[in-house]
Design a protein around this nucleic acid. Structure first.
Lengths: 337, 337
DNA sequence: ATTTGACGACCTCCGCCGGAC
DNA sequence: TGTCCGGCGGAGGTCGTCAAA
């Protein structure tokens, strides 16, 4: 079933059917009605590949989301979608695996859909100029920066929170409430990524407040963000018998697993151990106790990412790197010592 | 940058470059190396649209997932992906909005990628033959059936649990523990979908056990599966002052919101109120208390869906409709009365 | 003036044939 | 004879242009 079949059945030319399908004005109402009815009756669906092939450009903006199971990107995605719609543009979404190459996928998407620009929701922190050369349109890194890479500040755009500072503040909350023996649950202390940044914030907060860093209170999952591994890691930590009154962790989901592990091993939260995290998933408001966490402004991040991209597309010159602030959401998982 | 540019730069023909890119054997190692190095250096990416367009068929199987935020489909998706790989086929994934038309999207995907078959993860329960005529390849409905539609049994394939029976059993668990005043938290009792099926299971279990149905204990969110609405609905229910010792709900995420609402209004779980749900998300093992829930065999469902599809593709004649059993996972959210 | 038809270019693959050594 | 490479044509939908009704 091709456009030619429709044309033949209607007794008109391929050009005419194409005009109807693309809602162009220069077709008589009678012919338009007839073509549409045949299209409907035959269940004809235009071939998207052929369509994409011939369009030299589109008004579409691509969004590449890495990590389909990442709840944090869900809220953000809604805002991004709305902002792109509001700008009269179209969003083309591609969800990829958390170990896939978002740059490569973005480049493929760019060519396939003839994109005007790209937004990456999540990605590596260590791009090199060579790999980014694949991308031929303006792009914005959303929720991460290139701090471990070699891109120039002017070579890309980003919207993010200050991961170091946010972790620093979270740990400070615990310190100010009198906690001194503060454990940290992280994937890895040197993954050249978010985990390392936030771990460094933890270390800096301890140092600045005169608390000696205790290596044995740093619990690494071995790179994993999975709840399963977080649970096992915290369980091991508790079983070492080490004393700690609070736990800092870098994501809400890991915190959820930590809450469970602590409870299962007889440590009540927050009575026996306070827990604080970073992310601010809406889900964590439904934990018992409600999770105390540093909320990333997901919606504002999405809005800003779209705003920056649109500005770049129109040749504007506004700030290309936006740092937003994470704010403390008081829950019930932290108590004064 | 097209295949022609690469051919020109290499001083070979377009055919030769195409042969290299498609890993065909009849190219000399020297030419192959040269072409690949130029492709690499130029960052050439073949145009997927043209590629898809020209292929008359592929070995790909399409998977359409409706509701990107649905955690239940995450586990299933991994199994489906592995099973398709194991069969030597390729998976093409499309995530769509929960209010999008999965049939339409599936039909588009089918033409775009020249699919051999389709698997729908989540969809409407009331298809008509007319709309399904859009789909031109074998397909399997995974996690739902056409029980509210007008398809013939022979017209489609499905893998699902018995929603009525599963709800029935969940409520029976509560009844056998002595509970009589059992509230139900559901999106809607007549949505011609999963909510209605499970609600009927609840009603049947009450009836068969001689417990009169109390209209005021049926809490509807108004069609929403969102935690926010579940929380508000349970809060209202508690505030009416109605007495109930247990709560049945149709999904783990709604149960999570219910746990929170009950706790926030002074009802401890399971001491003051037991909670049971259906789904068996891995996440709900990390709730405090662990959620007692009827676990859908997500992985087995994924495996079966692929197996059925492969059988249909090879002209096999095995059972087209597979009903799997949900099994009770004992948690800490239910107690005997 | 309005509506319609014809045509080529866009890009890649693939089967086939022909040529070269 | 076998190996390697070049060239051709068709398939797909769109869109601007030109011609024609």
């Amino acid at each position: 079933m091709t456009i030619r079949d429709i044309a033949r059945e209607c007794g008109v030319s391929v050009s005419t059917v194409s005009r109807v399908l693309n809602k162009r004005p220069d077709v008589s109402p009678a012919v338009r009605r007839q073509v549409l009815s045949v299209v409907e009756r035959q269940g004809y669906i235009p071939n998207n590949s052929a369509r994409d092939l011939v369009r030299s450009q589109s008004d579409a903006i691509g969004v590449v989301v890495r990590g389909s199971g990442n709840l944090f990107f869900s809220d953000m995605l809604k805002t991004v979608s709305r902002a792109i719609d509001a700008a009269g543009s179209t969003m083309v979404l591609r969800q990829i695996d958390s170990d896939a190459d978002e740059v490569k996928e973005g480049a493929i998407l760019e060519r396939e859909k003839k994109l005007r620009g790209l937004i990456f929701l999540g990605g590596r922190f260590d791009y090199t100029p060579a790999e980014l050369a694949l991308i031929g349109v303006p792009y914005v890194c959303c929720s991460y920066t290139n701090c471990f890479g070699s891109l120039g500040e002017e070579d890309y755009a980003s919207v993010s929170i200050d991961d170091h500072l946010t972790a620093y503040r979270a740990v400070e909350v615990l310190l100010q409430l009198g906690h001194r023996r503060i454990a940290a649950l992280i994937p890895s202390r040197d993954d050249r990524s978010i985990s390392q940044l936030r771990c460094n914030g933890y270390l800096a907060a301890l140092r600045d407040n005169g608390v000696a860093f205790d290596e044995t209170l740093l619990a690494e999952t071995g790179g994993s963000f999975a709840m399963e591994d977080a649970y096992a890691t915290v369980s091991r930590l508790v079983q070492t018998g080490k004393d700690f009154t609070a736990l800092f962790t870098i994501s809400d989901t890991m915190a959820m697993a930590a809450l469970k592990a602590l409870t299962d091993h007889g440590r009540q939260v927050p009575r026996d151990c306070s827990v604080i995290a970073i992310d601010g998933l809406s889900m964590s408001e439904y934990l018992v106790p409600t999770l105390t966490t540093m909320v990333q402004p997901a919606e504002e991040m999405g809005r800003q990412a779209v705003a920056i991209l649109l500005d770049m597309l129109s040749g504007g010159s506004r700030q290309r790197h936006v740092r937003l602030e994470a704010t403390l959401r008081q829950g019930g998982s932290v108590r004064p010592l």
